[in-house]
């Protein structure tokens, strides 16, 4: 049994998710809590947002994100990979900075333009 807070709306129901009973969700006040509770316990994922170094840009850091969610437990490892990245301006919003981080099919993309 896992206890989590539902984040679908600000009420923040305390959900109890039973792994032994096919991820049965209780404690939800609405139907949306069921699918959130199941997926959050089965396979918790997060979009990673951070920054990487950039040379000759208008700022020393370029904001980036993963174009799809990563497993929650991989976030710190992905941060270590981003720490090694150094780019050169200019960069455009949406440019792929890093393909397939940590052997996944998830790309790291720039989230802003950065001129020289």
């Amino acid at each position: 049994m896992k206890e989590i807070t539902c984040i679908i709306c600000p009420q923040g129901c305390r959900l109890r998710v039973d792994e032994d009973r096919d991820f049965e969700v209780t404690g939800n006040r609405c139907i949306r809590g069921v699918s959130y509770g199941k997926s959050e316990v089965r396979n918790p994922v997060r979009i990673l947002t951070s920054t990487v170094r950039i040379k000759n840009g208008s700022h020393p850091r370029l904001p980036v994100k993963s174009d799809r969610p990563l497993p929650k437990e991989d976030l710190m490892e992905a941060m270590a990979v981003l720490d090694e990245v150094e780019l050169e301006a200019p960069v455009n919003r949406g440019d792929v900075i890093l393909e397939g981080i940590l052997g996944t099919s998830v790309n790291i993309v720039a989230t802003r333009d950065m001129a020289k």
């Binding site: 979009i47 947002t49 904001p63 994100k65 919003r93 989230t111 802003r112 333009d113």
Partner: peptide, 9 residues
């Protein structure tokens, strides 16, 4: 769902 810089852009 956008990041702040994307929304600004």
């Amino acid at each position: 769902e956008l990041t702040g810089p994307e929304y600004a852009g």
